[in-house]
Computed example of a mutant assay.
Amino acid sequence: MADLQAVTDDTFEAEVLKSDKPVLVDFWAEWCGPCRQVSPILDELNASHGDKVTFVKMNVDENPVTPSSYRVTGIPNLIVFQGGEQVRQIVGARPKSAILKELEEFIG
């Protein structure tokens, strides 16, 4: 997981909940195979749509508080936040086309 900015339990509120544009948070872990499949897709989406949606990642092993408060029990788990609220959740590895479809309303 190379390019996406990492957020932590400490920075989550400032970076995600107080953002003025939608934020997709990729909840992941180092040991998670499907997370590694989704990572390059999110890097591509960040490159092509990062002006409309902020893409960040959160390691669930290093940051247990935030995932638990949003009931993240399986990973990869992509949650879109807008205006401080959770507005979309995508659980499990999906192909790029499926993720794009879920994000249509945010990226236009």
Results as ranks from 00 to 15, higher is better:
1 M>Y: 11
1 M>F: 13
2 A>R: 13
3 D>I: 11
5 Q>D: 14
5 Q>Y: 06
8 T>Q: 13
9 D>S: 10
9 D>Y: 07
10 D>M: 07
11 T>D: 03
11 T>E: 03
12 F>Q: 10
12 F>D: 11
13 E>F: 11
14 A>H: 11
14 A>V: 09
15 E>D: 15
15 E>S: 11
15 E>M: 08
21 K>N: 07
21 K>I: 15
22 P>G: 00
24 L>G: 06
25 V>A: 06
26 D>G: 05
27 F>A: 08
28 W>N: 12
30 E>K: 15
30 E>T: 15
31 W>L: 14
36 R>M: 14
36 R>W: 04
36 R>L: 14
37 Q>V: 11
38 V>P: 09
40 P>Q: 07
40 P>Y: 08
41 I>E: 04
43 D>L: 07
43 D>S: 15
43 D>V: 15
46 N>V: 01
47 A>F: 05
48 S>L: 13
48 S>F: 07
49 H>E: 07
51 D>K: 14
52 K>F: 00
52 K>I: 00
53 V>P: 04
53 V>T: 03
54 T>C: 02
54 T>P: 01
55 F>G: 00
56 V>N: 01
56 V>G: 02
57 K>R: 15
57 K>C: 08
57 K>F: 08
58 M>K: 12
59 N>Q: 10
61 D>A: 10
62 E>K: 00
63 N>C: 00
64 P>G: 07
65 V>L: 10
68 S>N: 11
69 S>I: 06
71 R>C: 01
72 V>A: 00
74 G>L: 11
75 I>K: 00
76 P>I: 00
77 N>C: 09
78 L>V: 05
78 L>F: 02
78 L>P: 07
79 I>V: 15
81 F>R: 00
82 Q>D: 15
83 G>I: 05
83 G>V: 04
83 G>P: 05
88 R>I: 13
88 R>F: 01
90 I>T: 09
91 V>F: 01
92 G>C: 09
92 G>S: 08
93 A>V: 04
94 R>V: 09
95 P>L: 01
95 P>A: 02
96 K>L: 03
96 K>R: 11
97 S>Y: 01
97 S>L: 06
98 A>G: 03
98 A>E: 14
99 I>S: 04
99 I>K: 02
102 E>H: 08
103 L>M: 13
103 L>K: 04
103 L>C: 08
104 E>R: 09
104 E>C: 03
